[in-house]
Design a protein around this nucleic acid. Sequence first.
DNA 1: TCCCTCTGAGAAAACCTTTTCCCAAATCGC
DNA 2: GCGATTTGGGAAAAGGTTTTCTCAGAGGGA
Lengths: 349, 349
Amino acid sequence: MSSDASPAPAKTPVTLREVAASAGVSVATASKALNGQGRMTAETRARIRETAQRLGFRPNSLAQSLLRRRSFTVGLLTNDTYGRFSLPLMSGVSDALVDAGVSVFLCNVEDDTRLAQLHVEAMLDKRVDGIIATGKRIDRHLPVDLANLRIPVIYAFTQPDPGAIAFVSDDAGGARLAVEHFCRLGKKRIAHVSGPSGFAVVHARAQAYRDVLIERGLPVIEPLLGAWSEAWGHEAVGKLFGAKAGREGAPDAVFCGNDQIARGVIDALRERGIGVPDDVGVIGFDNWEIVAEATRPPLSSVDMNLAALGREAGLALLSLVGGKPAEPGIRKLPCRLVVRQSCGRPPGG
Amino acid sequence: MSSDASPAPAKTPVTLREVAASAGVSVATASKALNGQGRMTAETRARIRETAQRLGFRPNSLAQSLLRRRSFTVGLLTNDTYGRFSLPLMSGVSDALVDAGVSVFLCNVEDDTRLAQLHVEAMLDKRVDGIIATGKRIDRHLPVDLANLRIPVIYAFTQPDPGAIAFVSDDAGGARLAVEHFCRLGKKRIAHVSGPSGFAVVHARAQAYRDVLIERGLPVIEPLLGAWSEAWGHEAVGKLFGAKAGREGAPDAVFCGNDQIARGVIDALRERGIGVPDDVGVIGFDNWEIVAEATRPPLSSVDMNLAALGREAGLALLSLVGGKPAEPGIRKLPCRLVVRQSCGRPPGG
DNA sequence: TCCCTCTGAGAAAACCTTTTCCCAAATCGC
DNA sequence: GCGATTTGGGAAAAGGTTTTCTCAGAGGGA
């Protein structure tokens, strides 16, 4: 009974002091034994370690943080309510940090300045080692100023402050991927339907679209800019394919600014009796799997690799926290084309 | 120059000791002044407060936590990668806690037991005050055992351990809302298409569906159970509306188990030339706005009030952390019907 | 004037860990 | 056998705050 070895669910966590007492040494020695510091006989070290193990000792992270002036904690600020973009990103961040023992505070601040301020202050009070700012769209600022915070800040998939470090997807590169894929499939008249002209990414992708077509000597159809919605995709098909029954001059491929637009395009094409992918190929953007896979046919789409982006942002923050300086600026990470069925098969394939 | 009042971005945070020194009192007095404790002249208290303000003093939360044995931090565990369910829930949790100064660690553990274990231990080491467990579907367990944790655990929208406290949506009530709405609209033949029969919620909703119809003396069409997908909704229409051209005996309303199924149903009805909502009304479940609003016509849907559910869970955890005992058990929170256009208008309305 | 009570404020312990310094004993060289 | 070095381990400070206890002085009553 006295040698009960089962790790009883202690009501209060066991401290280093108790381990030391139980092993018959001082707390200093116990600390050194567990951290591989100091000098002592192998026997002493082993005994202390065994005691700690038996008692289920886990160092109090709060005390460590207080001493080291590092909380092993970072804040992730987002305004993406449904988390469609920020959760994959967050997974990447978390993934990069968990091995370093760093946990992530997630704060969804919507677009509420007061709320954002409140959360930032709470995080500062808790002595987070750094902050990652992210959002639902690359072009929009978060409703709070993170510029002079005395802790490192990394921007990921959101509009950075000048002089800051930011990770974003290479939208132009992603667009090239899509359009070049259409070219390889032998498409000759490739159209582009995208979101509102107020977004910088819309223009970046549109320009890349034009560049590829010009390089290949294919006709450029002026991109149709509208909204990020299915309804707009639907409407755009009306403009592209017109009232004329003949398919002379009509596109044989449509590259869309996001998956919802693509979905609207596909639905509208079906309503007109135009087959996807046989008559017209379609590629979306975002690779929002739950939508892309449910589309009929399953939608090919450009994936922004948000998890990888999050991982990079996490590692960069870690390095900054570790004291390594880093160049300010915007780092673009490559996209990746996920081919499903909506874009068509290679000719003769 | 010496009276520079601008709150300079100090490189290192100002401590209570500095405030005390600057105000010419001891740290004990300073602490008491700022916390409204102890006895001192109003003048002294005001002077200390003013000094703290001027210096931009913010108490180090780590030191406070160490002393109070409370970190003002909770962990939120989820396995919902895209966060469709957990982010609205998380917003509610966060909302309930932010005013109490409590921050939330979000850990997405996918379905990886090792990862889950790792995160839970990290949170325990950081002395979180409690944990909220949530998931993407109410029926599934998280891949980690939270039963004997010596800190309070609340389950929200996920399968709880026996003897635990859980908050879930009232699925039967939500189903009643939908079916009764159809009844009020004068629908006579109401069908139900839902997800896999492996889910308890599927049966709860199906039973509520039957109950309402029986109460009203309307015919019960045996619910069609399949998958949570558009494809299944599409397929189910084939079964419900058969090959027979006549609409004798065919449903005039379909209540769907989620919005994706509903979407599939609507698409399939359109393909058959059946009008929504004029010929057949459709109601979905989840009220996933980004889908429901993009559907043509916009989809009426049962909303599970996830943010409210998160808020309740947060408050319950707070109360538990505060030492107030609570009955174990499952609390069901009411759903709410969001009426858009897919269900139809009242007769003569 | 003396004793008692109140008032305002400070000293110190506590929370838990890490790290620097220090000391006694043991070992080594000669 | 004696001084110098190494070895094993402990005492104490530090990190920033809160809280309890203590204490000097002021004011009141007799």
